[in-house]
Lab assay of single mutants.
Amino acid sequence: MASQGTKRSYEQMETDGERQNATEIRASVGKMIDGIGRFYIQMCTELKLSDYEGRLIQNSLTIERMVLSAFDERRNKYLEEHPSAGKDPKKTGGPIYKRVDRKWMRELVLYDKEEIRRIWRQANNGDDATAGLTHMMIWHSNLNDTTYQRTRALVRTGMDPRMCSLMQGSTLPRRSGAAGAAVKGVGTMVMELIRMIKRGINDRNFWRGENGRKTRSAYERMCNILKGKFQTAAQRAMMDQVRESRNPGNAEIEDLIFLARSALILRGSVAHKSCLPACVYGPAVASGYDFEKEGYSLVGIDPFKLLQNSQVYSLIRPNENPAHKSQLVWMACNSAAFEDLRVLSFIRGTKVSPRGKLSTRGVQIASNENMDAMESSTLELRSRYWAIRTRSGGNTNQQRASAGQISVQPAFSVQRNLPFDKPTIMAAFTGNTEGRTSDMRAEIIRMMEGAKPEEMSFQGRGVFELSDERAANPIVPSFDMSNEGSYFFGDNAEEYDN
């Protein structure tokens, strides 16, 4: 993207840094990872977990959730003011799984939030270390993106479920800051804005008074975040219109849905970061690795190297396929839920299948599930090659597409044709070009129609051997075009429920 120079890199967003050079960025990201790792080690000690239990991804998720809940100030305040039966607002906890007599047992633990905050700050040299908290939120978000298709949420806001490739980060909490905003897809931002506008339509006082002023500035800020994701002048001009509207209503909703559809071809720039579970960072720190000293990046080879040398386990339900569970977590670790499966298959070195073909449910185990038949197995999170994460949407291309997802959002900077089903997408653009945004709409449609099938995206960008740390010898991959490109292809993934 041309304006790259004016933006802070995501590592800076990730670490609240002012302008830093590459070495400083690597050190501050490393410091953040160190903090998460030290916190995780301490929690495993508190909970008396064995090494194996500490490497269980379900335990990692519970521990991450506990610290996120302990620092969720708004919710904590709300819980104190609106006490609900049987919930102690000062405590947080969740299921911890232990191996007892050759069987997995679930144990519900409860801790004072104050105590968890103390352990977290102690692991982070006394700081609140917001960057580390956001990092864990993005890992949870990436896992949700890989596990669930947001059909219901899309339909509720009037969008087409086939636009799911635009929904990265749709389950990120509001408090995820600049680093969170960077990884949100165009569809996620559109959905947040539509929800806001709908509230304004239904509630006369939404934009009024002292609160209304705050609401208005939040609305304009979200519009600017979305505008910054678009790469064409016409899309940005249309966002200006939406932002400046005196009284946002149905016309703005129409414009936003139009823009979301246009992003299936004229893709937005959305950041991709490899955020790993805390149970990967903990053992690495415990083994003596100093992330701050060595430096770390979320968008280069580092996460690949770390996963190459990590042992992570997962509980497996009786009829689940461990290899499929591994694929789910591998995609989440690489922030690749909406990437082209052919690119992923090449990088991973084994075939990556669409969601609907995987015999696996989510990673988390519900409290009512029976533990008797639970097994555990090693997650295979290694890769054959590594590639640089991208934040450009890439230019655009036609490809055989599917009944489910009709476009992709690249996660890796790797040369390819970008699949999208042009006739299906263009069919949504018939007729409606009147109104105050008509010239911009016409211009956007013209650009979409001009998108050429034979153009290559990320020209000359390749993948790298894991021994090639400096990215000196790019390998331009070859793809098996007979395979499906979309992950949520004609899909039956479970729906995400809060």
Rank of each mutant, 00 (worst) to 15 (best):
T433E: 09
G158V: 01
G185D: 07
E244T: 03
Q459F: 03
G169T: 07
G404V: 10
E469Q: 14
P354S: 06
N144R: 00
M196D: 06
F420N: 11
K48C: 09
T130D: 03
S245F: 03
R384S: 11
G177W: 04
L341P: 11
M159W: 04
I253Y: 07
D255S: 06
V242W: 05
F230I: 02
T232E: 05
N125M: 12
N395R: 14
G169P: 04
E81L: 11
E484R: 00
L298S: 10
T360I: 04
P89W: 14
R199L: 02
T360C: 15
I406H: 13
S269M: 09
Q364P: 02
I116F: 06
E192L: 02
T430F: 00
I25A: 01
G180P: 01
M189W: 10
V343W: 01
M137H: 06
Y148N: 10
G158A: 12
L166G: 01
M238D: 06
N432S: 12
I57N: 08
R246L: 02
I119D: 12
G228K: 10
R74S: 12
A472W: 13
A22S: 15
P322E: 03
R174A: 00
C44L: 13
G177P: 00
Q58W: 06
M448P: 04
R355M: 06
T92H: 10
S383P: 01
D290C: 10
F39I: 04
D497A: 13
S482F: 02
Q399S: 06
A263D: 03
N319I: 06
G450A: 11
H135V: 03
G209R: 06
L306H: 05
R26M: 04
I301C: 08
L381M: 14
I96K: 04
S438V: 14
R162C: 02
K87G: 05
A332V: 04
L79Q: 09
K103I: 08
A427N: 14
N397G: 01
D203L: 07
S478N: 00
G462K: 03
N76A: 09
Q311L: 00
L47V: 15
D16W: 05
I41C: 13
R38G: 13
K98I: 05
D127N: 09
A153K: 04
G268C: 13
R461I: 00
Q415N: 06
M189T: 10
I316W: 01
E294W: 01
Y52W: 08
K198S: 15
F338M: 10
D439C: 00
R117V: 13
